[in-house]
């Protein structure tokens, strides 16, 4: 056998040409060991890689009231793309004007979130879609009903057939809507321009607001491209928020409702602050009507600090520079 080895090697070399002809994926872009800028916030990428056909179909479905039981509510009802991706209500209204129990988070940049929903009960955008469709106080429908309705619309039948071999299926509806949602990013905010090197993009106050935003420790949680959205944190890390607010309900248990883990009590997803000026009211309970209120509450319960109103104002000024563009238009 030993003597055969050179022969085997020779033959193997001759026969293994596919090994070399296949391209090895380019090594991952060189990773910065230490960020030179040390900025905790990053600009939103200008381009997003999505399937245009699915986005178009997803957009139709996103605005489709047939997804709800009585054909009165669509995704866009609560996630109005003209209103920062929210309905600007404390609690959203579902079918039959049923009021929900939690503030609707924005749909913009939701693809960057660690998980979906305030309590992170859905791992992906696809998984998230089931929630509102079957929730009785939201769309109050079932997949059976939704699919039957969609199959009655020739345009949908044709569109689905073009994209998905198995046509109208729940998974395809989810995929199309999720793909549309992945296209909902809002680049080119003034702050992003600033980050990209345009130092004149922010006013002195706004820059000062950003500095304070960092020095007060807000960036401990609100960091990354989405200025948050990529981690969970206890609401009331430094002080008991719910004791002060009172009237705690089940939704206030946050991630505990998902994991049942005691450590997850009152834990919520840290929301993205992108376009935060357009998504009032704030917090999961919608209790903060203005940004100033929200920043003050955050300072008190999350940072354990009492922020002076002047600093709050500057921080709010900075937060307003986070409003980006969707389809080339300021949100």
């Amino acid at each position: 056998m030993k003597r055969l080895l050179p022969l085997i090697l020779l033959l193997t070399l001759g026969g293994m040409s596919p090994l070399w002809s296949a391209s090895v994926p380019a090594a991952e872009a060189s990773r910065e060991v230490v960020s030179t800028q040390r900025e905790p916030l990053k600009p939103i990428p200008l381009e997003v890689n999505v399937d245009a056909r699915k986005v178009a179909l997803g957009r139709m479905l996103f605005h489709e009231t047939k997804l709800s039981h009585d054909n009165s509510v669509s995704c866009a009802s609560c996630h109005d793309l003209h209103r920062g991706g929210v309905d600007q209500r404390k609690h959203s209204l579902g079918i039959h004007q049923a009021e929900g129990s939690i503030n609707a988070p924005t749909v913009f940049n939701s693809a960057g979130s660690i998980r979906q929903f305030w309590n992170g009960r859905a791992a992906t955008l696809e998984d998230q879609i089931d929630g509102p469709i079957v929730a009785t106080e939201e769309m109050g429908s079932t997949w059976e009903e939704v699919l039957a309705k969609l199959r009655g619309v020739p345009e949908y039948v044709a569109s689905f057939k073009r994209i998905y071999p198995d046509a109208i299926q729940a998974k395809n509806v989810r995929n199309a809507i999720a793909e549309f949602e992945r296209s909902l990013n809002t680049p080119n905010s003034r702050f992003d321009k600033f980050l990209r090197g345009d130092k004149s993009a922010l006013t002195a106050d706004e820059k000062e607001g950003y500095r304070k935003f960092k020095s007060y420790g807000c960036t401990s949680c609100h960091q990354g491209v989405n200025v948050g959205g990529n981690m969970f944190e206890t609401l009331g890390a430094m002080a008991d928020y719910f004791a002060d607010r009172g009237g705690a309900t089940k939704v206030d248990l946050g991630r505990f409702n998902v994991t049942g883990n005691e450590e997850d009590r009152y834990v919520f997803k840290v929301p993205s602050l992108r376009n935060v000026a357009r998504t009032a009211p704030y917090l999961h309970d919608g209790s903060a009507a203005t940004l100033e209120q929200a920043v003050t509450i955050m300072g008190r319960y999350q940072l354990g600090e009492c922020l002076p109103p002047a600093d709050v104002a500057q921080i709010v000024q900075f937060l307003k520079t986070l409003t980006g563009e969707y389809e080339g238009k300021q949100l």
């Binding site: 007060y216 420790g217 401990s220 890390a237 940072l303 600090e305």
Partner: peptide, 13 residues
């Protein structure tokens, strides 16, 4: 992440 955020915030403050 959660614990570290609180810790780093406190250490900074």
């Amino acid at each position: 992440k959660s614990q570290n955020a609180v810790l780093s915030n406190s250490l900074r403050y």
